[in-house]
Design a protein around this nucleic acid. Structure first.
Length: 752
DNA sequence: GGCTCGATCTTTTTT
DNA sequence: AGATCGAGCC
């Protein structure tokens, strides 16, 4: 077993797996088997060194990574021993510690976790309390400042001490203080609090710190380059006595500085732990040489950094990386869709082998249209995530309120959902009144019910509020006796959610939103076997900490559409990177700072290194954003790639194609007019794409024919022609206008 | 208190 | 271009 553990590892990986004592820094290039090293090291610790899995802690950044690691370890050491390991995200691990020991900070253990949306609402409330104008002090901006301060472990008091410079900062300080006070009053922690409260707990209570130091004898941290100050300190605290700290990371893949990640944490690891072993993993098992060459060209063009790795592979040269200019974003996405269709038609790839990556979520929309038009299955990761849909959050807010009625933010959220005649005016008055009384809103409602206080409400409003209070109390009673699903059903029924959704959004969208609630109900059903008291809390905790990427379905045979950030850690046989233009990648907001610019470069590097066999780089000649159309310039990062590494495909004829002069007048990549590197040499010279047309040999649709499309309805065929093993049908739909469809994907049906 | 219309802003990236 | 937000009206 032990030899088997080491058998399939290269010397560097083996060295890492066998580095047991003391601090170890593993710098792992993309595709170099770092997950393999992590899992095998854990297995090695258990099997060979005889470490109790109970004493091992492994921290990742996403639940998905944690889950995968756990699954692999179940296979390696058996489910029983794997279950004793602590594997989770930073936030996860912190929640576990806090649930156990937060009482030592004078707080209750059943705290709620506030997400970005809740934070926003809370900040609004803060501004109202402090009589500040949202226009002048945007809640998001203030909240951002506070979040950064928290990530740096700066308390409100310290913030005030170090930021006396401007009036604005004085305001931020006051908001910060109030914000924390309100969180506390609601018995809630926001995402940042989960980390910093844990640090504070361990800092202020040495016996507790000792307890965890004794337990977690072996520490491992994945994606170490993404740790922020708070996470760094937490790791340091836990590892202080044993110093068995094993971190894995890649400074070339650091893309989260904007979220507070500090690249110095990894670069200065050897300063923090002078006795550290440093191991470089440079052999890449994922990509072809062609792909690696392009990726390396992109990253090495940037400033040379410490521990520059030189990636190599035995995978062979592979297919050349393709670069393509679309006319506009529609043409760009259309080209991608067509190319995927061709690859799949060729039989070499499945839809599930393909991924399209982009800088901003907004880009997914056009892409989605192009894929839908051709009937290609896809899954979009991110954007509006399930747990952020309004109706879902509304029901979750009810659940949170039932769990903890003092959660004023959740209360405010559902006070008039569905509409029950309690408007913004009343809500404001209620909030102000509660603030005056110095109690949570729920408590204020209670006071209102006693009839012993003078309240600012007239009879009608008062009745509406009391009816709401009664509803909440009833739900709390239901929760004590019935399981989670029954509780949700009661909420939905009692509030007439379905009817309200249909009234507000119409029958079609209303049903769609209702289905989302049914999906939430399905998820909740997984929790009803837990003890009654634990169901709600466990459910909400897990719901609060899910990320988009956690729901990615790798098994599904569908094209994956995903942001570059979320794509980190994934791999696909075929990868398309779209929107490689100035202003998009690098993004406009990153242009003014060198560090930000370099982070954008790394983003492209991360994207490129996701590809195993085929990589496509795309940009558009013109692009519409904010409702404005502008010509765009290819990304400066493309300029560093030697032309001979890239292939320009022959232009495919599409009905929407504009005059070709638009393409030929372009003068090379990069922001300025660097005319030295024209498309010239490779452009148009590459028509050598060999295809074995498995498609139709004659057209099956005719002009004038009536057809039906599953999305566009009925239409009239304008023309049809054979194109590259497929039939391209142009159809005019009365509602949607003229569309050019591929017969093999569009599922067109003749109508007689 | 709720509705309609126009103005305004949006797009970084997320645990 | 589309969504959200606010002012003004019912």
């Amino acid at each position: 077993m032990t030899t088997a553990l080491l058998e399939h590892l290269n010397p560097a990986q083996r060295q890492a797996v066998q580095a047991i004592d003391g601090p170890v820094l593993v710098l792992a290039g993309p595709g170099s088997g770092k997950t393999r090293v992590l899992t095998h090291r854990v297995a090695y610790l258990i099997e060979q060194v005889g470490v109790d899995p109970f004493n091992i802690l492994a921290v990742t950044f996403t639940n998905k990574a944690a889950r995968e690691m756990k699954e692999r370890l179940e296979a390696l050491v058996g489910a029983g021993r794997a279950a004793a390991l602590t594997i989770g995200t930073f936030h996860n691990v912190c929640v576990r510690i806090l649930r156990r020991d937060i009482v030592h900070l004078g707080r209750e253990r059943d705290f709620a976790i506030y997400d970005a949306d809740d934070q926003q609402r809370l900040m609004r409330r803060v501004l109202k309390d402090l009589n500040l104008d949202e226009k002048q002090y945007p809640p998001r901006a203030i909240q951002g400042r506070i979040s950064s301060a928290k990530n740096e472990l700066v308390s409100p008091q310290e913030y005030a001490r170090y930021n006396r410079a401007s009036y604005y900062e004085e305001i931020v300080f006051r908001c910060y203080e109030r914000y924390q006070a309100l969180l506390r009053e609601a018995n809630a922690l926001d995402f940042d609090d989960l980390l910093i409260e844990t640090v504070r707990l361990l800092d202020q209570h040495p016996p507790i710190l000792e307890k965890y130091q004794d337990r977690y004898v072996y520490l491992m941290v994945d994606e170490y380059q993404d740790t922020n100050r708070a996470q760094y300190v937490l790791v340091k605290q836990l590892a202080a006595t044993r110093r068995n700290l094993f971190v894995v990371g890649d400074n070339d893949q650091s893309i989260y500085a904007w979220r507070g990640a500090d690249i110095r944490n990894i670069l200065q690891f050897e300063d923090d732990y002078p006795e550290a072993q440093v191991i470089l993993l440079e052999q890449n098992y994922r990509s072809t040489q062609a792909i690696l060459d392009v990726a390396q060209a992109v990253i090495r063009e940037g400033a040379q950094q410490k521990h520059a790795k030189q990636l190599w592979t035995e995978n062979g040269a592979g297919v050349e990386v393709t670069i393509h200019e679309g006319y506009d974003q529609n043409d760009e996405s259309g080209w991608v869709a067509d190319e995927i269709a061709r690859l799949v038609a060729g039989g070499e790839y499945h839809l599930g082998d393909c991924a399209v990556m982009y800088r901003t979520n907004a880009q997914s929309r056009v892409l989605e249209e192009a894929l839908m038009l051709r009937g290609l299955r896809y899954q979009i990761i991110g954007g509006t995530r399930f747990y952020e849909r309004k109706e879902v959050k509304d029901v979750l807010a009810y659940l949170r309120l039932v769990h903890n009625p003092f959660d004023s933010i959740s209360l405010g959220r559902v006070l008039n959902v569905p509409p029950r005649g309690i408007g913004t005016r009343t809500e404001e008055t209620l909030n102000r009144w509660a603030t005056e009384l110095g109690v949570p809103v729920y408590q204020a409602l209670r006071e209102l019910a006693t009839e012993e206080v003078t309240s600012p409400f007239n009879g009608r409003t008062r009745n509406a509020l009391l009816a709401f209070l009664q509803t909440v109390d009833e739900l709390i009673a239901v929760r004590r006796q019935h399981n989670l699903v029954a509780l949700i059903d009661t909420i939905l029924e009692r509030m007439q959610f379905r009817e309200a959704l249909e009234r507000e959004h119409g029958p079609e969208e209303g049903t769609e939103r209702w289905d989302n609630l049914m999906e939430l109900r399905n998820v909740a059903a997984d929790y009803i076997n837990l003890p009654l008291e634990a169901q709600l809390a466990t459910f909400m905790e897990e719901v609060a900490l899910v990320a988009d990427i956690d729901v990615l379905d790798a098994e599904k045979d569908a094209i994956t559409c995903i942001t570059l950030h979320q794509a980190k850690g994934l791999e696909y046989p075929v990868v398309f990177l779209i929107g490689l233009e100035e202003g998009l990648l690098p993004h406009n907001r990153s242009l003014d700072e060198k560090d930000k610019l370099e982070e954008e470069r790394r983003l492209l590097y991360v994207g490129a290194t996701r590809a195993k066999q085929r990589l496509y780089l795309l940009y558009a000649f013109r692009r519409t954003s904010y409702g404005r159309t502008n010509t765009s310039t290819p990304s400066r990062f493309l300029a560093g790639i030697p032309q001979e590494l890239l292939k320009q495909p022959a232009r495919r004829q599409t009905t929407a194609a504009p005059q070709s002069s638009m393409f030929t007048q372009r003068s090379g990549y990069g922001p300025a007019a660097s005319s030295s590197r024209a498309h010239g040499k490779t452009a148009r010279s590459n028509s050598s794409r060999k295809r074995t047309p498995a498609g139709p040999t004659e057209v099956s649709f005719f002009p004038g024919q009536q057809v039906r499309h599953h999305l566009f309805g009925e239409g009239i065929v304008i023309s049809s022609k054979l194109v590259e093993g497929d039939e391209e049908v142009t159809v005019n739909f009365p509602d949607k206008g003229q569309k050019c469809l591929l017969a093999s994907f569009a599922r067109l049906e003749p109508v007689d």
